[in-house]
Nucleic acid binder design. Sequence first.
DNA 1: CACGAGACCTGTTCGC
DNA 2: TGCGAACAGGTCTCGT
Length: 268
Amino acid sequence: MPELPEVETIVRGLRPQVVGQTIQNAELLWPRTLVTPGADQFVRAIIGQKVKAVSRRAKFIILELSVSSLLIHLRMSGDILVKDKPVQIERHDRLILSLSNDKVMVFNDTRKFGRAWLTRNPEEVLGGLGPEPLSEAFTAEWLEQALRSRKRRLKPLLLDQAFIAGLGNIYTDEALHLARLHPLKTSDSVTPEQAGRLWRAIREVLEEGIRRSGASIDWVYRGGDFQNYLRAYGRTGQPCPECGTPIERLVVGQRSTHVCPVCQNEEL
DNA sequence: CACGAGACCTGTTCGC
DNA sequence: TGCGAACAGGTCTCGT
């Protein structure tokens, strides 16, 4: 469910509740959630560590602890909640950390796709990621040249976390619509002018997503309201906000894709 | 290298 | 009403 803006929203909410706290206990309810280390070693290693900082890289949540880092990826249905003690275990709770401030941090994940890593070397997990789209490193010039150096359809390329990190299905459709580029357009056919539009569009949709605290779709509600301002995603049959033409749905790289056939059609 | 299909999971909505 | 199919904000692995 979460893309960069939703993860950023979660991180901002989490930070003041867990930074400075010591982890007093850990319960792993679904072993496969943990990639590394093994369950026993994980519990032994994490107890007693203090949370020094909470940050985000792409869609990963990073808890910097005293001696290692806990990385969490929410994948499709993951969520992080902080509750007061005592807590009762809920339906899809996968990992529970008990904190020194009488609160618990709960990783709840209906579909069990979410993953966590406890490691002294976060780079082993994060090393392959592309640039952060809201960082200084992500410039229009970089994007233009990076697009030209590949020969891929725009949508799957933007979803590729090794190319650019943090976009998911919603924000990719939104950025392509805002940039007036078709998801099937080949990356090496993008002109400098179009690359500039795409660069700006990516930043704009992500910044708006964060400003609106993310999108709340489906049964997992997080308080964000970006879903009320979508241009294309999930709006099949509804009018394009620019030209009124009904938005069409197609499948690209096995992901449902939403496009205005008029605005996003300067020849593929 | 680029792409499609299948896995991994559970829950909700759609269509007949 | 019932019931199977389709679909869901992600990513990995395999085969062509």
